[in-house]
Design a protein around this nucleic acid. Sequence first.
RNA 1: CGGGGUAUAGCGCAGCCCGGUUAGCGCAUCUGCUUUGGGAGCAGAGGGUCGCAGGUUCGAAUCCUGCUACCCCGACCA
Length: 491
Amino acid sequence: MAKNLTSRDTDYSRWYNELVVKADLAQNSGVRGCMVIKPYGYGIWERVQAELDQRFKATGHENAYFPLFIPKSYFSKEASHVEGFAKECAVVTHYRLKNAEDGSGVVVDEDAKLEEELIVRPTSETIIWDTYRDWIQSYRDLPILVNQWANVVRWEMRTRLFLRTAEFLWQEGHTAHATKTEAIAEAEQMLDVYADVVENIMAIPVLKGTKSPNERFAGALETYCIEALMQDGKALQAGTSHFLGQNFAKAFDVKFQTKEGTVEHVWATSWGVSTRLMGALIMTHSDDNGLVIPPKLAPIQVVIVPIYRGEEQLEEISVVARKLKAEMEAKGLRVKFDNRDTHKPGWKFNEYELKGVPVRLAIGPKDLEKGTVEVARRDTLEKEYLQQEGIATKIENLLEQIQLNMFQKAVDFREENSHKADTWDEFKALIKKKGGFVYAHWDGTPETEEKIKELTKATIRCIPLDQKYEDGKCILTGNPSKGRVVFAVAY
RNA sequence: CGGGGUAUAGCGCAGCCCGGUUAGCGCAUCUGCUUUGGGAGCAGAGGGUCGCAGGUUCGAAUCCUGCUACCCCGACCA
């Protein structure tokens, strides 16, 4: 059978994996660590893309595309950057195959060895900065505000659908500026763009903050991040924006002449979010019946299921269904009328619940008589009968309510699972028993952070941007601290 | 890369220990009839190089050797 999902209480991890597959979002492929994103899952990703892309454009960015392959030598130029990715790179060494002499199949032609190996991009800073050198001579060429939608490859040891795959889809913005101030403002602006989409479209509340040096992006001077809390008490990094200083400009010799005639290195940022957001979506909202998608994100916002006996009755119901569909579509709602005769209503109810469609309308013979329609909302699973008259406006309002309710529910969950710890014992107990975000004092040293990670698996998720000054003592060493940082066990 | 496991129909599994006709079961699929307000019922049907390569044997899914792939637990990580 296996028609029902494993419950979250039984095995959260298993629930997640089953949900991804059964809701038709993605599946494992024949390629190690790489997933197939199915049309329904890709449809949700496309909506995330559209919301982000629109905001990128609105803040003055343009899309471009850079190569998938990067010559190995490029990675030698920025030491700390290569150190961050060296252990997880796929390397292309040959360019030709041939038939094996013993007929056993296709083998690599050893004669076709590349002079210089190519790295499948784990991120594109190096190739982009090598290109920017050609684009930038004068202060008049700045700023450069470019984004690319692409796939990248990081050869992870252990993978999970959406959360960590060897190949994943993302966008990476790479900007070049004349001043440090401007670059920092850019990095902060893009963090706000991410927070806007994640909170207001995906209904996932996030903490904005900066990373501790240990968790900082390889090659960055400052890493800004948004951190979300999942239902199982673990944190998920939902997006990052980096202030890169002049590191890449220096490594790739990107200079410009200022108005005053001096020559200076440019200032850089990079920022990205990935298909990992799909994982955040699932683990923030979904329940034991399946996915729950916030209305602003849902590819299908309203599904209409007819309940009928015989073709004649289906025809009568279809007339009403099409009319209601047209009324809702006129208001810009995304509506599907599922008149397939191959599945029964009960089957469809379960199907759309599993797929997280926010609102379901059912129309049957009783509704024809009374001029009503059964309205079921996915977030609360509540059902009620409403008059068909003026349904479009009612549903439009309901969708807004669902959007707000889902966000509020997630905020409440996060608040319930955010705690302060003032002693080491308290800290250990919180991390171990409840998980969630733990606000605690830290002496600011990488060594202490490392030690805490060893002892509890918890890491500093971020130093909140709205951190309040508060004298305290480091949870582990007792050394002085002037504010609390956020700890959690992370995905 | 260390530890553990698995590989048999589209999916999930049994059979293997103790070799023996035609390799089974559930779900899914197809056909027919009855059904349709929460994953329908009955009857029938199709679907397999038992991961790959060797070996032992009269005979191998089953025993032996080698290989490959995948999964889980660690270390690593958006």
